[in-house]
Each structure stands twice: as C-alpha cells, then as structure tokens.
Design a protein around this nucleic acid. Structure first.
Lengths: 144, 144
DNA sequence: GTAATCCTTCCCATGATGGGAGGGTCAAGC
DNA sequence: GCTTGACCCTCCCATCATGGGAAGGATTAC
C-alpha cells in the first residue's frame, strides 16, 4: 500500500506520516524498488492509533510512550493509566484556565452591555491605568 | 525609558516588545541617538493593554482591532463587544472540545481501573481494530 | 507512448515566544 | 581619563504540528 492509501485509510495526512517517521515516532516504512514507502495493514492500525491519540490531545512524547505500551504485550495497565492520568491532569488544568478567562471576559461583556456610560469596561479594564469605578477584583496572577 | 524599563513596567518581555513592533501591532518606538528605543508612559500603557488582552487569550489580530478601538475615542461599544463576543465564542468552542476529550479519557481511565483483565480499554480504544491479544506480529521491519 | 497522478526529498511558513551570538552604548567606579 | 558590567541593538535559530509548494522520478490508465 502506498502512502496515499495508508493516509486515506488511517486519516493521517501523507505529510504527517513522513513527519512521524522522521521524528521516529513510527518505524521507518519499508521501501519498494522505486523508493516508494510501502505500508501493511498493521501500519495503518498504528497510524490510526496515533491519529486517535492526537484527537484526544495527547502530545507526541505521550503518544510515543503509549505506542511502546501498545506493542508491549507484557505491559501493565498501571503504566497506561499513569500516562492517561498525567494527560488528564494537564487537560483539566487547561480547562480551568480557559474557564477562568471565559468568566472574566463574560463579566466584561456583560458590564459593557448593561453600562449606559460611553466607557466600555472591556476597554477600560484592559487599559488598566484607568480601572472602572467598580472593579470586580480579578485574579492577576501569572506575574511576569 | 529604555526597553528594559518598559518591559518591567508593562510585564511584556523586551523580546516581545520588539516582535510586536516588527509586526506593526505597536507603532515603532522613538529612537535615541544611540539607536536605543525610547518609551513614554503611554507606550507602557499600550503594552500593558496588550499583555492583559493576551492573558485573556485574544489573538494578535483581535488585539490589533481592540487597540484601534482603544485609541478611538469615538468608538462604539458595540464594536468592542463584537470582538469580545467573537473571542468568547471561540473560547467556548475550545472549552467544549476540551471537555469532550476529558470526558472520553476519563471514561477510558475509569474502565481501565476497574477492569480485571489485562486488556486496557485505553489502549484498545485507541487501537480501534483492537490489536488483538494474540497479534504479536509487526515490529518486524522495525529498525529498518 | 503519452498524460495524469502519484511519490520522493527539500525548503519555507505559520504563531508566539525564547535563546543566543556578535557587537555597540551607557553609567558608575577608580 | 579608563575599565567594567549591565544594557541595548540586529540577526539567526528553535520550538510544535502542520501545510504548501517546487523539482523531479515512478506508476498507472488510456
């Protein structure tokens, strides 16, 4: 199977397949006499595995570990869970930050809507040096 | 004020200040005879504005629009709200996807924990076609 | 036998940020 | 004066995962 077919069958672009090979996330594919890469069904499975892990937000290093566990029949579930939990924690932290930003922005949009003054809190708040009269104390961590 | 002081006062790294100038997000700073950039208080305000907008996840193009509105005293709140709402929608969509991934992964981790068999759903699910407990094949062409 | 499609490698770009090299400038101390 | 160390300048490179595209060879369909 050519790279094009493998791509269509796995949902990973040919570009990415070559890239994954170049960073040794995947074993180098076999080559035909022509130089064309040649893929078997199991290669497509591996590619699909990578794509689904990427869809779940796993990073390449994490997928590297997952792949090793995947082909290791003697692996322990604990190892797999550890990677998944680590990634889960990262995602939850990311979600928390995102919700915080959403909350802040929502409040600003809300004030701007209901405000009758010409000053828009979104702008004022961002400008900082002239904070709105009723500043709803917000978390200003992330010091530089 | 030198770039270092402006950086400390605004919380934007000197590297970033130069970058923002290079992409014309900020007007080119004045220069001294020495070639050093020179910043005034209002420049620092603008920098702080950018930093806060970045903290809220606004993209550079969005900040570009916000900056224009900021310095436009005749702006309409509706314009500002439109940008904020657009960004809000993006963030909410992002949060939705993230929550979906978290949910899926949580379910997988949960099954893996309670499962007594050696097969871990995290792995199986990713593998899709289930790598089959008796398919040791493959790393054949490995290090080719 | 020819044209269309596929494959190859290599280079470039993204977005926002940091690192670092090589070299000029400033301010303080002696 | 002169030295020293901190600061600044411009470039170039790297990230991370991905895509675009060019130049050229291979395969395939008609």
């Amino acid at each position: 199977m050519n790279i094009g077919q493998a791509s269509a069958a796995s949902g990973v672009s040919a570009k990415m397949i070559r890239y994954y090979e170049s960073i040794a996330l995947l074993p180098a594919a076999g080559r035909r006499d022509s130089g064309y890469r040649d893929y078997a069904t199991e290669d497509v499975h591996r590619l699909a595995f990578v794509r689904r892990a990427r869809d779940l937000g796993f990073s390449i290093p994490q997928i590297r570990s997952l792949l090793a566990l995947w082909s290791d029949t003697g692996r322990s579930n604990a190892d797999v869970r550890a990677i998944a939990r680590e990634h889960l924690a990262e995602m939850e932290e990311q979600a928390r930050k995102l919700q915080e930003m959403i909350g802040t922005l929502k409040a600003l949009v809300g004030s701007c809507e209901t405000g009758r003054r010409s000053a828009c809190p979104i702008i004022d708040e961002l400008g900082d040096h002239r904070p709105a009269p009723a500043t709803p104390a917000k978390p200003r961590r992330r010091a530089a």
